[in-house]
Design a protein around this nucleic acid. Structure first.
Lengths: 147, 147
DNA sequence: AACATTTAAATCGCGCACGATTAAATCACT
DNA sequence: AGTGATTTAATCGTGCGCGATTTAAATGTT
């Protein structure tokens, strides 16, 4: 066991905990999402559209923190599964609106139980979870050095 | 703005914060890792090997929480870049040992500055970061329902 | 010894992520 | 009007993640 560089010990690395926890939670979602033939990133995009239908790809990207190189293929899959339609803005042909189909809208009620199902799977008290979320959101405003 | 299901509001979703923060942090690593021609998951595997050289694929997988379907190609890339070698156990040919090369060992010192560089990029006090890590590690022991 | 079971790694297929580039439309400015 | 810059989405290539399967080796059981 090398200890020349204790700062490189995996157990000391917050970032690894973050990376592992994120994948762990995504795995916990899977049994529920699989029932609706959804992946977690697809579910995120639907959460965004359920809040406000008819958004531009750009705006969805800003909300989900994903660029078109990820979103375009993902939206095509949602379209193929009959959950959304895409339509170019006739005013500005560069832009592309994404609309929920009836099926996509109906899915909202069916997914409404998912957050509480997820909550049931942890023993961490809600106050702690809120605290955790706040800390994570703080991390997001972390500056890129030299930016 | 739909509010039939406030529990589906993205802003209320801890899991999205987790997902977004994890990708954000990985992006922050990239400028430093790129200098050594490494990806973040490759860096994780090296952290593990720097702590204990000559591990089995299975043990690396347990530590990194990755299975062979992810690790095998990743290790092949590390091997091709001259950082590790892989060698079947002659006692038990099913198993495969992974060893650091000299170049792989030398990389440890070069990477020793990375954790402090990362710390510099956040304004969150260290105590808060430790708290964050503890909460994340608690999430990891979350049971899979029905398991 | 013969055969079923288990284990470890590799393989396969699909869907992200994301840097980089491209293509087309719009904007800004002269 | 003409042209360079900007914006938006799409495309391309690479590397994860991971469920599912396969292959081969080792182990257990009769």
């Amino acid at each position: 066991m090398s200890d020349k560089h204790p700062e490189l010990n995996l157990d000391n690395q917050l970032c690894f905990s973050l990376y592992a926890a994120s994948r762990h939670i995504t795995r916990l979602y899977q049994p529920m999402l699989k029932q609706h033939n959804l992946t977690y990133p697809q579910y995120i995009v639907l959460l965004i559209l359920w809040q406000k239908d008819g958004m531009l790809v750009k705006d969805i990207g800003e909300r989900a923190q994903l660029k078109s190189n990820t979103l375009t293929p993902l939206l095509k899959r949602l379209e193929q599964n009959g959950l959304v339609t895409r339509q170019r803005d006739s005013e500005d042909e560069r832009q592309c609106y994404v609309y929920l189909t009836e099926q996509g809208k109906n899915l909202e009620s069916l997914c409404a139980c998912i957050p509480s199902q997820m909550l049931k799977q942890t023993e961490i008290p809600v106050e702690k979870l809120i605290e955790l979320k706040q800390l994570l959101d703080q991390l997001m405003v972390t500056e890129v050095h030299g930016k």
